[in-house]
């Protein structure tokens, strides 16, 4: 059984589908976590604490990394295969066929954008939070507006507010989310198709569900970004001296 997941085209699709599904669930979880920030920065930090260098958070992180890596590596493998299958001689004229979504033909491009955004995102947050804890440190001293500031790695709210006080970060993240939106509009219904849970009656429904999920993700993350940008001053002031409860 192990082999059909690596050597059969349908097995590879199954892997894409399952890892994709896992990543969608992770994104939805991440989004709901972010939303707590809108209600209470303290609550958000509690979550950050909970997801620090604990064994369960670490296990989760490893699985997540594996999921992303497998999804991405398989995508690259499939693309190479598909490029070969297309043949050396390409069509001189190509068109977008009727009813075919742009996203469906550009999933790898969207994937690269998402990976790029992810790298930036890791630098912005993960490297300053969980990584710091993994390295065994309890404080982190970034330079905020030119002055070194001591921050607890669980003080996610401050980090978020600070990051999104910059308009360019908000803009980059929104572009990133837009790529994710396109990726999900195809990816979400596609994962049902790949495991065979689809038919002509359900295509419109699945595509609708995919758009709803994608839009929910987009709005869920974007609203936090925008509100952080608008309220960053208040939150930075409120959370600058936050320390975790013992």
């Amino acid at each position: 059984m192990s082999c059909f997941l690596t050597n059969s085209s349908l097995g590879k699709k199954l892997v894409m589908s399952v890892t994709g599904c896992f990543l969608v669930l992770f994104i939805l979880f991440h989004m709901s976590m972010n939303i707590t920030l809108l209600f209470s920065p303290e609550a958000y930090n509690m979550v950050c604490e909970f997801l620090g260098a604990n064994w369960y958070a670490l296990v989760g992180t490893v699985i997540l990394v594996a999921g992303i890596a497998i999804h991405f590596i398989y995508a690259l493998m499939l693309t190479v295969d598909n490029y070969r299958a297309r043949g050396k001689q390409r069509y001189a004229v190509t068109v977008k066929e009727k009813g075919v979504e742009w996203a469906s033909k550009n999933m790898l491009l969207l994937g690269w954008i998402i990976i790029g955004g992810l790298a930036l995102h890791l630098i912005h947050f993960w490297s300053k939070m969980q990584l710091v804890e993994i390295m065994g440190s309890h404080y982190f001293t970034p330079e905020i507006d030119g002055t070194a500031t001591v921050i607890n790695p669980a003080n996610g709210a401050l980090l978020v507010a600070y990051t999104f006080s910059k308009w360019y970060n908000v803009l980059i993240y929104i572009l990133w989310l837009a790529a994710l939106w396109f990726h999900l509009t195809h990816g979400v219904w596609s994962m049902f198709q790949s495991v065979g849970w689809a038919n002509d009656t359900w295509y419109p429904r699945l595509k609708c569900i995919a758009k709803i999920v994608a839009t929910l993700v987009l709005l869920g993350f974007a609203v936090v970004l925008i509100l952080m940008y608008l309220n960053s001053g208040d939150i930075i002031a409120q959370m600058s001296h936050w320390v975790p409860e013992a």
Binding site: N7, S9, D81, N82, R84, K98, G99, S104, K105
Partner: peptide, 16 residues
Amino acid sequence: DELGFGNCTNTGACQA
């Protein structure tokens, strides 16, 4: 797979 056809990515171009 053996004959060198590619992998389906559910674009739906075929049915169009």
